[in-house]
Design a binder for these strands. Structure first.
Lengths: 103, 103
DNA sequence: ATATATTTGACATTACTTGTCAAGTGTAAT
DNA sequence: ATTACACTTGACAAGTAATGTCAAATATAT
């Protein structure tokens, strides 16, 4: 069992589980099949709007899928950075500070 | 004493501490003063190259400044997201997973 | 072999980023 | 109060990256 699936893998698995074709899903998203194909193979990023629509189409939990998607966007931002991991920790600290302040 | 300074605030404080004008620093960066002014007031983001040069010009620790800068970029990515904090945590988990695998 | 599903890559369009420039504001000294 | 200087603001230009289409290539299944 794979512990760490990409958003694309999740989308493909669930599309296939429902017996849907790229054609069917991409029509609902109003994009070419080529893009959906690339999204499922992590060759392209989806937009937030597409993620939300996909959650509906595939009956997935919106929040989970969005968290999955956002975490990938974050990692994309620091993927080539040696200091990425430290930057992530600092970002979390700042996040806490911000939410503490806004109470 | 302020606990959580922005990159811009750090840059401005240290430029002033050294008695440098926007004009002096922006010339070394080869950009207009307008941009540096905006960077210091967090109205624009610097590029990574500019951050590294600024660290040199202002005698700041490169790694620290870069971590500061990257953490802001991360937060920028999720600033409007309700689920941002959860996404950050998931990103950290994935980060750990990736580095564990590559050992 | 045909038909259908998916993938690939070249290209167009659009939206962001990064920058310049000129005019504006603030402040201090004469 | 006018000159001088540092900085700020906003309109715009140029470059880059994101998002999409399309047609041809490649599986896959009958």
């Amino acid at each position: 069992m794979k512990e760490n699936k990409t958003t694309g893998e999740i989308l493909r698995e669930n599309r296939e589980k429902k017996g849907l074709l790229l054609r069917h899903v991409s029509a609902k998203l109003d994009i070419d099949t080529a893009i959906l194909s690339k999204i499922e193979r992590s060759e392209r990023k989806a937009t937030k709007e597409q993620i939300l629509k996909l959650a509906e189409i595939l009956d997935l939990d919106k929040d989970n899928l969005l968290i999955q998607y956002l975490s990938e966007k974050i990692l994309y931002e620091i993927k080539d950075e040696e200091l990425g991991s430290k930057a992530l920790k600092v970002a979390e600290q700042k996040m806490k500070y911000i939410s503490r302040k806004s109470k």
